[in-house]
Design a protein around this nucleic acid. Structure first.
Lengths: 106, 106
DNA sequence: TGCCATATTGGCAAATATACCAACGAGCAA
DNA sequence: TTGCTCGTTGGTATATTTGCCAATATGGCA
């Protein structure tokens, strides 16, 4: 078993992925590095909100950023994080099998 | 790209894992089904707190529970979720390489 | 039936997360 | 310098999460 401290570090990384917007950003960056403006364009959100989501991903080391001319370019550092999404799908499918179809909040 | 709705469903599942206590519970249940009292014994927390963490895991379909005599027994339904922890470790190791050793909150 | 052990639920307070607007800073061009 | 674009940071309001205590089921046993 891991220690509570180790679990806390791991949970910080998982927490960074635990938001729809950040999940979509990760999916998008899987295709390759993208400028902030491109990422921003995916959402109907304030610039500052998208910037802060990227900050969360940077803080945990999932993405990095660098200046490229006028743009700020974001890169997915650890693409294996998306491997996990297959398992998340397995959870969803298992729920469907178990007739617990709706994960939506009531 | 997945839709925002799909991302929201996925993030609910990831969110369920995004807590040190729930992470440790998942690790523990990887060894096999365990009674509530055994899980409770891992932590210095109120019974109700542990029960609520298990509720979160149940709601998303990561674990299930069944009565066994006086005990409530919890089972990890989708063991592949722990495969992901290897990647989380990869993130941590990448951070170490990049000299961003400390993920702790300041 | 009454009592006990086991776990869940309700309610509350504190901490954390999220999103907006506004202000700021950095870099480039006129 | 001035103005412009790009992105970040500060501040605030709201929503969600977390953990404790107390109260409530639920089931076994005397």
């Amino acid at each position: 078993m891991i220690t509570f401290e180790e679990a806390a570090i791991r949970s910080d990384i998982i927490k960074a992925m635990a938001h729809p917007v950040r999940l979509l950003i990760i999916e998008y960056l899987k295709e390759g590095p993208r400028a902030f403006s491109e990422i921003f364009g995916l959402f109907d959100l304030d610039k500052s909100t998208v910037s802060k989501h990227l900050h969360v991903l940077k803080e945990t080391g999932i993405v990095t950023s660098r200046k490229n001319g006028v743009d700020m370019v974001y890169t997915l550092e650890v693409p294996c994080v998306t491997d996990f999404f297959g398992c998340v799908t397995a959870v969803i499918e298992n729920n469907v099998r178990r007739q617990q179809v709706c994960l939506c909040k009531r």
